[in-house]
Design a binder for these strands. Structure first.
Lengths: 184, 184
DNA sequence: TTTATTTGGGAACATTCATTCCCTAATATA
DNA sequence: TATATTAGGGAATGAATGTTCCCAAATAAA
């Protein structure tokens, strides 16, 4: 089931919700039409399932990236580096399902909008937490506003996925280096 | 014609390309089906026309915002403030056509991807120019890397449109204030 | 005034889509 | 072994989509 959802994630990331046909889904999930509808009520339910798995995986990847840092400041830096990395290459061209859902569905699908905003707030709270850790361990100055800075960084990370999907090259070290000024 | 395109822009921003039916378009453009196809070859051509007008209007608005600043640094600040403003309220919920096209079409429509990257590069070059102006007039330190900083700011602005479409509240003064640290 | 020409409108058409239905094979149950 | 239940596959279906075709009104030309 998870491997089928991984296929759905791939095609939903790349083409979005509306441009993905059931035919695209059955090919990507390696399941016949009837089997898809036996496992999910409809296309929307497949999307919801894929979105849930996508966010779970991404949250875990981001947490692992943060864990590579020895203090709060370094943990923020590794999170930013991780975002740049995921915004590039094959995965970057494929795109982010949160960004895609926000852009394509949040105006017309209240349920998806709620899930998107929830995910954004989770990510934002995670970064704000890292900033506060850094202030506690002395690696980030106390005058930095954790909430405002985290919100701006969320904008940066979501924007990275947009720019990455448009295939502009992104240099992780340089961009993260500049972004770390926000913690000065 | 421009007023018809404005209607098309409205609906394309809100729903994107694939979720916008010809019925949606005729309603928004106040034109019958036949009239739309007399003015444009097909739906894709309507989208191209709307995209062209959208970017022209947005570039002009951004230039006007920049002109409100007395030096390079202030001009950058006003551009950021303008982006936050446009990412909020009714326009923010409607969404940005460049972001929407990047996310929905750049993987499947090479022509649109080219237009999107061209627009992103134009915006980026504009901001980089403002930074260099600031370095010339002394309002921005010379050690700031104009290109890297501009690219990061483009990510921020595109991300603002994503977050704004998801309806998270954005405080222009606070966010722009934090972002100005990038020019330190 | 009469005749072309253009402009706007909407019904008709073919295609594509999401969904349902039913069949077959495999596994579990008795 | 015989039967019941599940899982998977794919054709059939009805709705919706993009596009074309043709009509009617208005304007320009004769």
């Amino acid at each position: 089931m998870d491997t089928a959802l991984d296929g759905a994630i791939r095609v939903f990331c790349e083409r979005g919700y509306h441009a993905t046909s059931i035919g695209d889904l059955t090919a990507a999930m390696r399941l016949a039409t009837g089997s898809v509808y036996k496992a999910f009520r409809d296309k929307h339910a497949v999307f919801l399932g894929a979105f849930g798995r996508y966010t779970a995986v991404r949250v875990e990847q981001t947490r692992r990236a943060a864990a590579r840092g020895a203090n709060g400041r370094e943990r923020v830096r590794h999170v930013l580096l991780s975002y740049v990395e995921h915004s590039q290459g094959a995965e970057g061209r494929r795109g982010c399902m949160v960004v895609g859902s926000a852009v394509e569905l949040s105006a017309v699908d209240p349920e998806m909008r709620a899930r998107v905003t929830a995910q954004l707030k989770t990510n934002e709270a995670f970064i704000a937490g890292l900033i506060r850790e850094g202030q506690a361990d002395g690696s980030i100055p106390g005058h930095v506003d954790a909430d405002d800075t985290a919100r701006l960084m969320i904008c940066m990370t979501q924007g990275l996925r947009v720019v990455g999907k448009a295939r502009l090259p992104l240099d992780g070290e340089r961009l993260a280096g500049v972004a770390m000024k926000l913690l000065a």
